[in-house]
Design a protein around this nucleic acid. Structure first.
Lengths: 345, 345
DNA sequence: CTGAAAGCGCTTACAG
DNA sequence: CTGAAAGCGCTTACAG
């Protein structure tokens, strides 16, 4: 004998009453409820999730799909853990569990998600690393699974998403550099199909145009989103006949490799080349020179995602009536020393 | 109509036969099996996990519990993602899913795990961030849930665990520094209750004794496991009247903050103070000077954990007959420039 | 306020 | 080789 039957037998009442007491139904004698709750705590009872899910038709769990490929494995910083912290906290308030679903590098992300969805492992999903054209969106829509995307796609916006404000970052970075006298500004973007590279490039070109600056095509540098990618960017810059005086990085860790390469060439970031990083990390201020970058709260982003997701779940939509969230997450410039140089006229 | 019933109706056979065909039971006509498999693929059918779990009494899922506290959120870098990559791959071969279970900072890890276990959310568990005395071990033993710990505890070893070879790291680091002439060597350990701090300190003292070097108590420096912690270590070192000539860090990211603090004081790592980091990360070789550190494969560690866990699961024990794994994961020294100095006699 | 019963979607011994 | 039926642990309308 186990589970709710054992608890009921122990208390000598029916399993129905135990269940109602545990689930806070109103039609239970308060004395009975107290006895049930006490016994449950004593015996460490928690309802079997499979039994409950099967009966209720929902799992009480939200899935956060992450892809662990070589690039994220070797290079990703603390981004996901921070977001997860915010997510768990916000979902816990609504008695929802977060389970992180890591898609193996050996499996196609679309197939993986399809399996998860068909098996009804979770009630709702957060996807990340959105591609420009992301078939997972169609899959989730067809299956009518509530979801939110961390990252835009190139397609229509008939779903909830939150993305970092690449436009704002590009504009603030270019405005700052332009004010310091820079006219030849380069940008580093990732060399993969993740949508953010396209978004950031467009935003950068738009910002440059706004300041009546022209973008030299060779100044748009594709590299891996990693420290090593930063080093190769350094190589590319050093090999240029017409070297830019500033560069905006799409990934802050690139700064480490770029600093190294510049140092090897006897050049100093912030004196010989202005460097603006992307997201402020725990390292930004401890690098030499400290990296100018953009601040945001990962925890708040997690909370935002949770709320945006809840808004798409029928059971919670009345508490979060915002509909499909389309949000650019603001990022605030933090001055460092890495672009502390003025270009003479 | 949905699920297996719909599939059976579509094929005009019984759900029992559909189930047997899908699950590879031998007593099914091959023609029938093919039809079932084709239809399942066509309709995107995958068995409802709650129904299956309830009937089978197992979930086919393994949980990896991680704690997302302020420290790990801001500082634990790519460690977990790398391990997760190895885990998913190794478990996928046995048709087991990995779900990552992040314990909210608002919840007690023991209570969280108890809930997960009582609800039978997963068949087996990997725990990390082991405390010196970790009640989760008792909980899992009492519930008879197969598990493996990533990290030792201070208690008896009647369970499977894998831990990094702190002893090996301490010995190799001290041996190398001693050979370069260092006699005053400091060590940085974390300022929390995670067991690894105790283990590393003991290993360091043992290594020092082995080389007949004495450890100045003030040279055992407790700090946060972060870049910022490295900076405070720099402060502590600079304030000492009898400054050590070398330091061994328990967390490689501390090097960033320490480098910064030394630079501010006009000192150069590798010339004025030898620095040995812990785990080689993607940044180690791109720092200036490159950080001497220890190499290991996160992916292989994940695979090792998966195999150690499978050995504790009755259904897989015959394939992995190693019993309770107790393993120190080897780490190989990678020479950098951060300790490239020789102390005169 | 409580109990008895149905049924969620599966798998599997059993009968044929 | 296939079908009918039981039952995994819950929740919830329904009857009393």
């Amino acid at each position: 004998m186990k589970g709710i039957k054992r608890l009921a037998q122990h208390l000598d009442i029916s399993i129905g009453t135990v269940s109602r007491a545990l689930n806070g139904k109103p039609d239970v004698n308060e004395e009975t409820r107290r006895r049930v709750l006490d016994a449950a705590a004593l015996l460490g009872y928690a309802p079997n999730q499979a039994g409950r899910s099967l009966r209720r038709g929902s799992t009480n769990a939200v899935g956060f799909m992450i892809e662990s490929n070589d690039e994220t494995e070797t290079n990703s910083d603390n981004f996901f853990l921070g977001v997860i912290g915010g997510l768990t906290g916000a979902l816990l308030k609504h008695n929802l569990d977060l389970v992180v679903l890591p898609c193996s590098v050996n499996e196609d992300p679309h197939d993986y998600l399809q399996r998860i969805v068909a098996r009804r492992l979770v009630d709702a999903v957060i996807i990340s690393a959105t591609q420009r054209r992301d078939r997972r969106i169609d899959l989730l829509k067809a299956a009518r699974i509530p979801f939110i995307a961390l990252g835009r796609t190139g397609g229509p916006d008939e779903h909830a998403w939150i993305d970092l404000d690449f436009e704002g970052v590009a504009h603030k970075a270019v405005a700052r550099l332009a004010a310091l006298g820079h006219r030849q500004i380069a940008v580093a973007i990732p060399d993969n199909e993740i949508n953010l590279g396209y978004v950031f490039r467009d935003a950068f070109e738009d910002a440059m145009a706004h300041h009546r600056l022209t973008v030299d095509p060779s100044h748009i540098i594709r590299a891996r989103s990693s420290e090593h990618g930063g080093y190769t960017i350094g190589n590319a810059l050093l090999a240029m006949e017409k070297r830019p005086t500033a560069i905006v990085l799409v990934y802050e860790m690139m700064a480490i490799g770029l600093y190294r390469r510049l140092n090897e060439a006897g050049l100093t970031p912030g004196r010989d080349l202005a460097v603006v990083g992307f997201r402020e990390g725990p390292q930004s201020q401890f690098l030499s020179p400290a990296l100018t970058s953009f601040r945001m709260s990962l925890r708040d982003l997690g909370i935002g995602l949770a709320e945006g997701l809840l808004a798409t779940m029928p059971a919670y939509a009345d508490q979060f009536p915002q509909g499909f969230v389309h949000k650019l997450w603001p990022m605030e410039l933090v001055e460092g020393e890495s672009d502390a140089m003025v270009i003479g006229r």
